[in-house]
Simulated assay, not measured.
Amino acid sequence: MSSLFVKSSNTYFWYFAVHGLVIPFLALFLNYRGFSSLVIGELLAIYTASRIIGPTVWAIFADKTGKQLFVIRLGAFLAFACFSLLFWVQGYWPIAFALAMFSLFWTAILPQLEVMTNRAVKRSPKIYARIRLWGSLGFFVASVVAGEIIDVFSPEAFTWLGFIILLSLWGATLLLKQPRASIQSLVNNSSIFNKIFSKTFFWFFISGLLLQISFGPFYTFFALYLRDLDYPSYAVGLFLGVSVFAEIGIFLILGTLFKYFSLKSLLIVNLGFSAIRWFITGNFAESAWILGLAQCLHAFSFGMYHSVSIQYLQQHFNHNQQNRGQAIYIAGVYGIGGAIGAFVAGIYWQEGVGAQTAYELATYSAIIAIVFACFIPSKSTVKKR
């Protein structure tokens, strides 16, 4: 188990380190290349929309063959190769192509990694949370280090940082081992449609979609937002660091929370704190300590929400449906929701003039998500393992 823990944690570290680089600094990189906020929103929408196709296609292959590790390694290598195109390409469409292809393969990794990890730890929420927190550490280290390096050199350093992180991710996947799957799980590939079109999954899916739409201004323009508010360049890493430490804290107590609270109640709490977070960010960001408090709510809007989602999907889909179920969820919620959020944020941002409006829309999106989540049937707490 110790070897499994180290290898899985290492992979999560580098996978989410990519997040720690891309989320805060991709828009800064594109702005440095001369693109306006409207065009940046379009590029990030294209980049995010590519998640709609890749995860589902690879998950079907993984479910049919049981070769999750092959998909993970291939996805990591091709993501690394496509990201490297940014060293040479210029202009709207070449950059859009490079980002879309990079995202297409990179986002194919997580559904298989989640299934492999949960299967290896026998779906223990406690052990999973401990492994997953290393992803949060990867996000923190990447965002802080990248912020300092970009400040010293220029936003063009973004490409070299991505090159190093993605190469490390590919190397980490080469150390993983494919967990043994039962013969039944490889043979009994039952239809997934009845699970997807159930009312329970519909309400869960729509609430998650709206939550991801609400992340649009933050994922797309947070670094530029702080720059426009005259924060020092290192503030991006510090604020993201606050959010990551809060996220790690929630991971440490998730095992206990899952014992006593239903997934529905935890989901509603997450959505409520998300709405508060966007309201504070859009109206009180001039105050560093208030903005820091809002960043602490990342523990709920991302950390706890992600874990709740994984536990819900583990419960909702059968053993042999896990790859397809998670891929469909990620493709729809993170792909469609993320693309809509980035595109809308780009429309309303207007070089920072419409920042408050963008965050108000994000707040409304999270509030509406709460309404949909209330229709999810109440279920028991996650079983103790």
Rank of each mutant, 00 (worst) to 15 (best):
R123A: 15
C82P: 07
F239Y: 06
F83L: 14
G162S: 15
T363C: 10
S265V: 14
V308T: 01
W160N: 10
E360Y: 14
Y15P: 08
A285N: 02
R119Y: 06
S9D: 01
F222P: 00
N318A: 14
R385C: 15
F261E: 02
F317D: 00
E360H: 13
Q322P: 09
F77A: 13
V121I: 13
I192W: 11
I347G: 11
G332K: 11
V141P: 05
R119C: 09
V144N: 03
V242Q: 05
V57Y: 13
Q311S: 12
K7T: 13
F375A: 12
P155T: 03
M1K: 10
R51K: 05
Y128R: 05
V22P: 06
W93Q: 06
K67V: 11
F261Q: 08
K67M: 15
F221I: 02
Q90T: 12
W349C: 07
L166K: 03
Y225W: 14
I95K: 03
P179R: 11
L267Q: 00
A100H: 05
W289G: 12
I52N: 09
F29W: 09
N118K: 09
I290S: 09
V244E: 08
W289D: 08
K177R: 13
A294D: 10
V382S: 11
L38T: 03
E156C: 13
F70C: 07
F221D: 00
N323W: 06
I206A: 02
A142Q: 03
L254V: 07
Y231R: 06
L240W: 14
D151S: 15
T281F: 14
N318L: 14
Y32M: 10
S143Q: 08
R123K: 15
L137R: 00
L86Y: 06
F302G: 04
E286H: 11
F35S: 11
Y47F: 14
V18E: 04
L238N: 03
I213E: 07
F83D: 06
F215R: 01
L104A: 02
